[in-house]
Structures are given as structure tokens and as C-alpha cells.
Design a protein around this nucleic acid. Structure first.
Length: 303
DNA sequence: AACGGAACCTGAAAGC
DNA sequence: TGCTTTCAGGTTCCGT
């Protein structure tokens, strides 16, 4: 699903496709995606030029001339698609923006967890969620600031990092990946991490975001892991498969109703002296097919 | 105030 | 084979 790297990629695509162009028409189906839209829907933006695309965590803020604004959240399944004139549109398109020069941008969102709302740009900035957003971790995380935030909560580190006021833009995937890189167990108390662990975590977060962003290149629309895209992640979606570092089976647990993936050997719950990795049993290969790699085990039914 | 959990939504996959 | 059930997840809302 779209998290910070995917939204950053989407923002760059939107700039390339439409920045500087004037909006000539909009079509938006009346779904909950555009719920909350001020009267007049997106039509109020017609005739205005797209000046800027800003990313705030997983949100995007599009700035138009004369103070116009459009806020976009991709939810779980949303994505912006560029469509040439005459090209057939995809399924589940909830809104379309037509710009001068034959550029049409479709907002596709099968599960409708996304959101599009037009209003004055300065009004949109005041939306409670946006106003409360924590620092942006792309490009580097201030370990001291992060440590101060974490010290104030007794939640698990997994749940604390999912909170957008801690850092803006981390989701279920990036949190699992970052904790693995930092070798921290997801169930550890956020306020109980050592200074050194927080420093490792800050580095792990930045590294994971950077790595994920590097996987998205070119003009092609993004394919999310859940859709069968390549699962290049270290632990996310790899339950039951060997840890890439030590070969131990990666585990899946549920925290706050969400899946967490981690390696019990590299990320022990109790800090202990370094132990040798279990005898590397003939380094079982990761499944090659994207489908198989993306698959995660279902929760076992109780009998 | 901080936290936990349900609701929202629909396609895909598992279960029967 | 085909119908039914379960599951995923970001944010919001509500109850404790």
C-alpha cells in the first residue's frame, strides 16, 4: 500500500505530468472518496493552473493559482494514473482531472479508502491531521527528537512509529522494515529503548525509505506489493521464509490489529549477548515469483 | 490525556 | 464448480 516512498514517487509523477498546466475539466463520481468536499466539489479548481505538489507524510497538497488547493490521500489502494487523450480509462477511477494539452490524470482507488478534497490551500493546511503531522523522515531522522517523542509513550515501538505525529509517513511496511534494519523487536516498549537503539532506529528508518524509493523508477505506474508487485522487502510479507541475514524463519504477529513481520533471532525481545546464528541450513532460497513472495500466511482458524 | 479497538470498503483468496 | 466467509490496511471516531 502507499506509504511515504510511494507517495513521494506519486508527487514527483504529478509534477512531471501537470505542473504549470491549467485545469480545464474535472469529473468526480459521488463516492466517499470526495466526501467532505466543499460545495461545488472539485469544480471550483477549473481554470486554475497547478503550481505545486507538496508531500506531507502520506498526504499530498496540490497548490493552484489564486490560492486554490486540493488535498489527496491514496488510502490503501489509491494511485494517480496519467492518461493520454483517447486512451481508455482504468476501472475504479473515482475522479479525473483534465489539464490543457491533453493531459488527463485519473485517481483510481478500488477500495475507496482515499480522499480528495478541494478548498483554499491555507484552509487545507489547517486540517487537524496535517497540522499534527510529525517531522518528515525522508533524507534523515533526528535521533534526539525521535528519542524525546518515544520517551513519552508506553506503547510498543511498532505502534508508536505507526502514529503519524511521531514521524510523518511511516506505515505498516516501513515500520517492519525499519525495525528489522535497526535490529529492534517490534514489541519493545517505545519508552524503554536505549539511546543507542534509537540512533540505530533513526538510521534504519532513513535507510529503508531510501531503499524503497530507489525501487520505484521511470514512468510506469507503481504496482503495490499487495497487487502482485515485486516484494523486495527484507521481512514484510515474508513470514515463514528465511531471514536474509541469519536464515531464521521470519515471524508474523498482530499488533494493534495490524501485521508485523520480524526475525526473532536478529530482533530478540530481550537484549542478550551476541549469539551465533543457527547453523545456516542450506540457505533456503526466497520464492522467485512475485505472487508467492507477496503472499502472507492466513491466521489459523480456531477449531 | 493516552490508548485500544471498531468502522469504513471491496477485491482476492480461502473455505466449504 | 460456485457460493460464502475472511482478510488486508490508513485514518477516523468512539469508548474507557
Amino acid at each position: 500500500m502507499p506509504e511515504l516512498p510511494e507517495v513521494e514517487f506519486a508527487a514527483r509523477q504529478l509534477r512531471g505530468w501537470a505542473q504549470g498546466r491549467r485545469l480545464t475539466a474535472v469529473h468526480d463520481a459521488k463516492t466517499r472518496v470526495t466526501r467532505g468536499t466543499k460545495k461545488g466539489g472539485l469544480e471550483g479548481l477549473i481554470g486554475r493552473r497547478l503550481l505545486s505538489v507538496e508531500r506531507i507524510g502520506k498526504w499530498m497538497l496540490l497548490g493552484f493559482d489564486r490560492g486554490g488547493g486540493l488535498v489527496s490521500h491514496l488510502g490503501m489502494t489509491g494511485k494517480w494514473l496519467h492518461r493520454e487523450k483517447g486512451e481508455a480509462s482504468a476501472s475504479h477511477v473515482r475522479a479525473s482531472l483534465e489539464f490543457e494539452g491533453g493531459v488527463t490524470l485519473d485517481y483510481r482507488d478500488p477500495r475507496m479508502f482515499g480522499r480528495l478534497e478541494a478548498a483554499q490551500l491555507d484552509e487545507l493546511r489547517k486540517l487537524p491531521t496535517l497540522a499534527a503531522m510529525g517531522p518528515d523522515p525522508l533524507g534523515g531522522v533526528d535521533a534526539r527528537v525521535l528519542g524525546e517523542k518515544l520517551a513519552r509513550t508506553r506503547r510498543s515501538i511498532k505502534e508508536a512509529l505507526m502514529d503519524q505525529t511521531t514521524l510523518a509517513g511511516l506505515g505498516n511496511i516501513q515500520v517492519s522494515e525499519s525495525l528489522h534494519r535497526a535490529r529492534i523487536n517490534p514489541e519493545r516498549g517505545a519508552n524503554l529503548l536505549s539511546r543507542e537503539e534509537v540512533a540505530r532506529l533513526a538510521k534504519g528508518i532513513a535507510a529503508s525509505l531510501q531503499f524503497t524509493l530507489e525501487q520505484q523508477q521511470g514512468e510506469d505506474p507503481i504496482e503495490y506489493v499487495e497487487e502482485g508487485g515485486d516484494n523486495f522487502f527484507l521481512v514484510y510479507g515474508h513470514a515463514g521464509e528465511p531471514c536474509p541475514d541469519c536464515g531464521t524463519e521470519i515471524e508474523r504477529i498482530v499488533q494493534g490489529g495490524r501485521s508485523t513481520f520480524f526475525c526473532p533471532h536478529c530482533q530478540p525481545l530481550r537484549v542478550r549477548a551476541a549469539q551465533p546464528a543457527p547453523a545456516p541450513k542450506a540457505k533456503a532460497a526466497r520464492p522467485k515469483s512475485a505472487k508467492a513472495a507477496a503472499k502472507r500466511p492466513r491466521a489459523r482458524r480456531r477449531s
